[in-house]
């Protein structure tokens, strides 16, 4: 495949970001390839309801 890119003017005003987290990417510039993979797991067995005592064991 032939891919032709013509970059005219690119002007951005102010950018305000609260957070960039967990292998995220914030890029100003040019890039050839980007590959992102994310997995978040919270299965039913990860919700554990049990007595949680506040007093340290002797």
């Amino acid at each position: 495949m032939e891919f032709n890119v013509v970059n005219h003017q690119l002007c951005v005003d102010n950018i305000y970001i609260n957070g960039v987290a967990a292998s995220s990417l914030f890029l100003i510039g040019d890039v050839q390839t980007v590959q992102l993979s994310s997995a978040f797991d919270t299965p039913p067995e990860s919700l554990i309801i049990q007595p949680l005592s506040l007093v340290p064991k002797a």
Binding site: S23, S24, D30, V31, Q32, T33, S37, A39, F40
Partner: peptide, 9 residues
């Protein structure tokens, strides 16, 4: 400018 990017989480 960046060539290649790969991120995993």
């Amino acid at each position: 400018n960046v060539g290649h990017i790969r991120m995993t989480s």
